[in-house]
Amino acid sequence: MATLEVEALEKRFGGVQAVRGVSFAIRPGEMLALIGPNGAGKSTCFNMLNGQLRPDAGRVRLKGRDITGMAPRRVWRLGVGRTFQITATFGSMTVRENVQMALLSHHRRLMRLWRPVARMDASAADALLARLGMAEQAGRPCGILAYGDLKRVELAIALANDPALLLMDEPTAGMAPQERVGLMALTADIARERGIAVLFTEHDMDVVFSHADRILVLDRGTLIAEGAPAAVRADPRVREVYLGSGNMMSPGQGGH
């Protein structure tokens, strides 16, 4: 069964039709890229998938269960991890504590009043951080991290509840080109290992074409192409959409 099935999603902001009739599905372990120019509606799609926004129409099903319009925290409990385009972490906590919070929440231990956090789930958090190459940073406050490192912290947080689906909105923005490819390779490994379905957006086409199993192309709210990387690259409509911005085929661009 598909991990996520999306059916005819619609979202309108005032006069702007941000998302129009978007449908797709992701299988476990699959890396699916959602690409499109700025303002195409990618983040809006993400927000409807994890409950940040309620779609005007359409259905979202997670492992067969209808989660349309469910609050983000309930969607998360059903196994959806998420990273944000503009990182959102707890700035007054260390990297380790950020991950611990996700773990504690996952184990439903947030209401505890007595035992210090320092002694709860610390090793599990460290293991996750080590896997993402952040072991050295575990004790540093998130408030002073470099942007690229924050993106990694977000990934660690998103992985903490053993998600079935990972939503990554521009996971490598703010990183050096090599770092980007490295992080996505790592993500792909973890996804395959654990059977996580990954939906990600990305402006760096190198990253997209080297790591996506399949690509969706969104333009002004509408899906205009879908398929394997080679097919999408050859699609004339996709070329046309990207002609203006010119960052389709030239490596190392994108991110903003």
Partner: peptide
Amino acid sequence: APFGYALRAQRDSVLRAEAI
């Protein structure tokens, strides 16, 4: 304790807090 951390978590970022 976790509750105090949760308090700070929602203060630092409601978005992130709700997302976990």
